[in-house]
Design a binder for these strands. Structure first.
Lengths: 225, 225
DNA sequence: ATTACCATACAAGTATACAAGTTTGCTATA
DNA sequence: TATAGCAAACTTGTATACTTGTATGGTAAT
């Protein structure tokens, strides 16, 4: 846990961003106890902004507060992971069909640029950046269809999936295949072909399934129930 | 705005529930300004729990805070209404198919009881209770498929739809048709018929479309953009 | 009459003090 | 030694004072 400067934005947001990142990093392990005072000292702010950041994290189910007892980083919930996967699959397919009917030219350009950037970053083996670009690709599709809150809901449901993914020593992702899919999805949107678009998106999403039970067996303390 | 007792639960939650209900009632009109001090006085608590309730309402997009300027009840966003409708349609259809494959006996009993209760309340013309039962019917399907957070996401996206609905003097809902649909959906789940189930759910959801533009023309001040 | 400036009021953001409940561990007693 | 009970050291919940930024209205100079 590193402290940042209190330069820009509100302290509340700074604390929130810091904690959220550290929880999703697993630097703050699932199940670990964490107190308002502890964080306030470490980040050199008062309890109030820390408390308000905690509240936001509670709503996202990244923290669990038990009044007068303590606050804990939530454990990973495999049911939630499946729920997120389910929602993502269905909504991405539906939105892709929408995109293949109407899609703003501006957003289409973003998609194209994104795909090209991915090829570059793939050569540089920059996996972190590739993950970001992957997210942006899908987000752009939702934005183009004016469905960004649905994307946000998906992201929130997928937080446990992201933590789960980090527990694998290496996600042997086949970026070549992923990028091919992105290319094909982009072309389907460009060429207004809803049937192909949905098919490729369906294929694409099948790449990101993670076997949670194995990982749970390795790290039982990090999991719920 | 009526004040309640500070008997049970936290003050924060009490304030939150009160404000949320009054916003969704339209007793607190979209666009109206509202301050922490004002609410703290009315509800006879300090600013802290009010402030924390505000934060939660901001996250649900029912309030908008402009630092050092003021806080306002958010205006109704028709894009959001459409986004909620879209998500609801697709997720309800997907979950209904799930339910038609596996569904816990316990949840199935709940559905059956719910359908029967609806018939009773329809005779009593108790529309408020009918709306509650309608929500519970759909919620039960999601619960039975272990997809309750998806239901919660839908509910959150549909808050603007609910406010919109209240602006109609009378929603001429055909409860007989609605209840018939519920019966048919229940039977499809019971008889494990995914095709019929999804079809009826699709039909069913087409009943609750609201023409937002007309209402916006009548009450322009309540709407965004 | 218009404009520039300043005083004031009021908004949310933050810090700190206090209240109330829980856990923990020591102590006194059997 | 074992156990009941109490006290101290935590926790989060709430109240209040202070800080900082913004809007507003009045006043004086042009």
């Amino acid at each position: 846990m590193k402290l940042n400067f209190n330069v820009k934005g509100s302290m509340r947001d700074h604390v929130y961003q810091t904690l959220r990142a550290n929880i999703l990093n697993l630097e703050l392990e699932p199940g670990r106890s964490i107190s308002e005072n502890e964080i306030a000292e470490q980040l050199e702010v008062s309890r109030t902004p820390v408390r308000e950041a905690f509240l936001k994290l509670v709503q996202e189910e990244l923290l669990e507060v038990y009044p007068q007892r303590g606050t804990f980083v939530s454990r990973i919930n495999l049911d939630l992971v499946e729920e997120g996967r389910f929602m993502r699959e269905h909504m991405e397919r539906a939105v892709t069909q929408l995109a293949c009917n109407h899609f703003p030219a501006e957003a289409l350009l973003s998609l194209e640029a994104n795909v090209k950037l991915q090829r570059l970053e793939a050569i540089a083996r920059n996996n972190i950046r590739l993950h970001e670009l992957d997210d942006e690709f899908h987000q752009t599709i939702f934005q183009g269809c004016k469905k960004e809150r649905i994307w946000n809901s998906i992201q929130q449901l997928n937080m446990d999936f992201n933590r789960l993914r980090l527990l694998r020593l290496q996600m042997n992702l086949d970026w070549d295949q992923i990028m091919d899919h992105h290319q094909l999805i982009f072309e389907a949107i460009r060429d207004k072909d809803p049937v192909q678009g949905e098919q490729w998106m369906k294929q694409h999403l099948r790449l990101v399934v993670v076997e949670g039970d194995e990982i749970k067996a390795e790290h039982p303390k990090f999991f719920k129930s």
